[in-house]
Design a protein around this nucleic acid. Structure first.
Length: 821
DNA sequence: CTGGAGGGAGTTTTT
DNA sequence: CTCCCTCCAG
């Protein structure tokens, strides 16, 4: 976890009060930057950018060559004044550009580090960026930079400007499950049926509003379902406010409201703060984040870096149009396109191109590589998920034998549910692995319990936390008592904790209940005293001891309780880590600081650089790279994913970009597997190979099939169609290979993209002529064969199309049996 | 009020 | 399949 990042980083920011003070700070920092980057003193990490990029900016590309930058990269580094958008293709050296650019600002242009804001989406990315700048410009300077995720940066700003946002300084951040608990609570208070209004859905609706910057007052209900949503939204906001709590969206929204307020002092402060703003992964920003960035970049020195082809977070509010329309909002923006891929072998780049090429509305880019083809992309047909997993494990062993470190091997899947089988096989094979995501550590019941105790000690108004732990371990405060407590709290309009004493005084409770409530209050009060002085780790131990939580686990001698104890031990370990890091930065770790960091950390931050195979969803893989990559479950309806809810139209465009992200993670070897049969979510699905597989250029791919899948019997089970004549015996040929030989003549021009020389133009597919609205190259759907691409059409009253199906090869089908998508 | 058993529902991606 | 919730008996 890198949560401590910005703490030291933004110190200059917080210390600074007025413009004049700022100016003097600036001078001091400039002076220190000179001192810290002496030209005569050789640094450990040569060549340093500070030596090569002198002020005034030299003409690139000459020094750029020395830095190992290509021409567009150098342009992105050197363009310092005004807006700049960098379209950075996968593996095109984006991080390098950002870090050099910042180093250039610091050293070449004497921009004080605390006046540079760099925003990322994960703590891991932020930490890496800071580390790399430190190696270029020195630790002291890098420490002063404001680098962080949107959420962490805003949380920090909000601690500073909490007044302007109507919060107390010790506000808590509610995570997803806390938010759901709030919604459930509000539904109950409004007597709304949570079957009709599932908290998850209600919540996602609320988030959607918030991510576009609309509060309850701006909500326009349509239909009576929305009337209820509006009431819940209002109740939800009221609840958070009363609990002195914010959700993830609020972090950004609150800072945005301050920054956009033309009159307030904090607003002016914020807008004048940063001279340069950089945003990484810009394709993932949502409307509110974009507005915030614009407000903070009042200097107009705004550099955004992204790749619209890798936009995969639409469901959480990200809006690709923002990056695509950036030039409309900033007509004077300079544009740089990084198109040379340095990461992957030629075949992998070509496969990636094949997948992304049919995407709609993409910013034209010509990703190319100077590397040779390398190994072909291997597409594997497996019988079922066990067969698939066994095959993957075998290949992992093989890679290991070839000398590939296990840390350089990754297995991807579309949904977490696929991970279990893979895990079982790896464990049986004794192949060490680590999983990113899944059942998250901080979501485990015992961990949440202890955190709830800590949060209630930090902020007693947090009702969600109070409800969670008031009767854990059991202390005879049941539902009936809790309901009365809620009544009293509502009547007095105070948080639950403050209603404890009034409830007891009001009477009407049994003596036992009274006693329990007061005992609980005393417990919390005395722990709060402790909290004021003790370090968080001591406090956590104290909580476990004095609340009886430790005893509860001790008395329960199931295997589970041992695991729980271990988890709690690990949690305390993470508190100790936090304290140590804070101490190293010359600060004292606080309870609030730790809690904030926990809530804002993500699974990917915990990914270790260890000699173990990494397993994760494709989403989690964005931004990473590995020598050898397996993409599993490449079947239609898995990847692209199709949920059970037919109302929700799955977004093929985004799935396609997701596939592109997956493919481009691999440097040397890429294996893509699909299974004929797969047990998932409790029932068996029969799958056809993903339509995206058909988009790999034939020449870059080699088709294989597992031993099990190649047996006649399983072949019949999985693939054979009753109407089809039995296939002849003999060696089975994968569709991919078949195509290479016999079917080649049928292949449409687009199906076999020739190898391209570096820099050669990328040719967009021309829609061909066709009958009945069926164009060459168009994607069609057939009930039995799944998805295919039209190769040719015989016109006439009853047109017949020649269609290439993924997994079935080429077939002639009457057009009326085809659906266009 | 507690604890266990049994039924039902919902299953992507996450700061 | 698994988790969560409810319901029921003690």
């Amino acid at each position: 976890m890198e949560g401590a990042e910005g703490e030291g980083g933004c110190r200059g920011f917080f210390a600074e009060k007025s413009a004049t003070a700022g100016a003097s700070c600036e001078r001091a920092a400039a002076a220190s930057s000179v001192r810290d980057s002496p030209h005569g003193e050789p640094r450990a990490t040569a060549p340093s950018v500070t030596d090569l990029v002198a002020f005034p900016p030299p003409a690139f590309p000459e020094p750029a060559d020395e830095l190992g930058l290509n021409e567009p990269q150098a342009r992105a580094v050197a363009h310092v004044e005004g807006p700049l958008v960098v379209f950075a293709g996968a593996g095109s050296g984006k991080t390098r550009v950002i870090t050099y650019r910042i180093a250039n600002l610091l050293a070449g242009h004497r921009v004080p580090p605390y006046r540079v804001l760099a925003v990322t989406f994960t703590n891991k990315a932020a930490g890496e960026m800071r580390r790399r700048i430190a190696s270029l410009a020195g630790d002291e300077i890098a420490k002063e930079l404001c680098i962080g995720t949107f959420h962490a940066t805003c949380a920090r700003l909000l601690r500073r400007f909490h007044d302007a946002a109507g919060l107390e300084r010790n506000f808590v951040i509610y995570d997803d499950s806390d938010q759901r608990a709030v919604v459930a609570r509000v539904l109950k208070e409004l007597s709304l049926d949570d079957k009709r209004y599932p908290p998850r859905q209600v919540l996602s609706r609320i988030h959607k509003e918030k991510q576009e910057g609309r509060g309850p007052a701006d909500f326009e209900p349509q239909g009576f379902f929305d009337d209820a949503i509006l009431k819940v939204y209002e109740g939800y906001e009221r609840y958070l406010r009363k609990a002195n709590a914010v959700d993830f969206d609020d972090l950004i929204l609150s800072v945005l409201r301050i920054a956009e307020d033309p009159k307030s002092l904090p607003g002016e402060d914020l807008r004048a703060r940063f001279r340069h703003v950089l945003v990484d992964e810009f394709q993932d920003v949502n409307q509110v984040q974009y507005r915030l960035v614009r407000a903070l970049a009042a200097s107009r020195n705004l550099c955004v870096v992204g790749d619209d082809d890798q936009s995969i977070y639409r469901w959480r509010g990200a809006d690709v149009r923002i990056v695509r329309n950036f030039r409309r909002d900033f007509p004077d923006a300079a544009i740089v396109k990084l198109e040379q891929n340095y990461r992957s072998s030629g075949n992998i780049v070509r496969a990636a191109l094949g997948v992304i090429k049919p995407a709609k509305d993409r910013e034209p880019k010509e990703l190319w590589t100077a590397r040779d083809g390398g190994e072909p992309v291997v597409v594997v047909a497996a019988q079922n998920e066990h067969d698939e997993a066994a095959w993957v494990a075998e290949r992992v062993r093989e890679a290991q034998a070839r000398g590939v470190p296990l840390g350089e091997v990754a297995i991807f899947y579309r949904v977490h549910a696929q991970s279990r089988v893979l895990e079982e096989v790896l464990r049986a094979e004794r192949i060490p692995y680590q999983i990113v995501g899944g059942m998250r550590f901080f979501e485990r019941a015992e961990v949440k319990d202890l955190l709830s105790y800590l949060r209630i000690l930090d902020n007693p108004k947090s009702d969600v936390d109070l409800e969670r732990i008031i009767n854990v371990p059991a202390r005879k405060i049941g539902q009936a008592t809790l309901d009365r407590l809620t009544q009293v709290a509502n009547a007095l309009n105070v948080p639950l904790y403050e209603a404890l004493v009034p409830l007891v005084e009001r009477g009407g409770l049994g003596t036992a209940a009274k006693k329990s409530l007061l005992a609980f209050r005393d417990l919390i009060e005395s722990l709060r005293e402790k909290a004021a002085s003790a370090p968080p780790s001591d406090l956590a131990r104290e909580v476990l001891a004095r609340t009886g939580y430790a005893r509860m686990l001790d008395e329960d001698d199931s295997a589970e309780s041992d695991a729980r104890k271990q988890n709690l031990q690990e949690l305390i370990g993470s508190i100790l880590d936090y304290e140590a890091e804070a101490a190293a930065a010359g600060q004292v770790g606080t309870l609030s600081g730790y809690l904030e960091r926990v809530t804002l950390s993500s699974d990917i931050d915990a990914l270790e650089d260890a000699p173990r195979v990494s397993m994760m969803t494709v989403h989690a893989a964005k931004g990473l790279e590995f020598d050898t990559v397996f993409i599993t479950g490449m079947e239609d309806e898995i990847f692209p994913f199709k949920g059970p809810d037919p109302k929700r139209n799955e977004d093929i465009e985004e799935e396609r970009r997701l596939a592109y992200v997956a493919v481009t993670r691999a440097r040397e070897r890429l294996f893509v597997t699909h299974a004929a049969r797969r047990m998932i979510f409790g029932n068996t699905r029969f799958g056809v190979p993903s339509r995206f597989i058909a988009d790999f250029p034939t020449a870059a791919v080699k088709g294989l099939m597992t031993a099990a899948a190649s047996s006649e019997r399983s072949f019949r089970d999985g693939y054979r169609d009753r109407d089809e004549p039995a296939r002849p015996r003999g060696p089975w040929v994968h569709p991919m290979d078949r195509e290479k030989t016999s079917a080649r003549s049928f292949a449409s021009p687009s199906a076999s993209v020739p190898a391209r020389a570096p820099g050669e133009r990328y040719i967009e597919r021309e829609p061909g002529e066709g009958a009945g609205g069926l164009a060459r190259g168009a994607r069609v759907m057939h009930e039995k064969f799944g998805v295919g691409a039209i190769v040719d059409v015989d016109p006439g009253d009853d047109p017949i199309a020649t269609v290439k199906f993924s997994g079935w090869g080429v077939k002639r089908i009457k057009a009326r049996f085809l659906r266009t998508e």
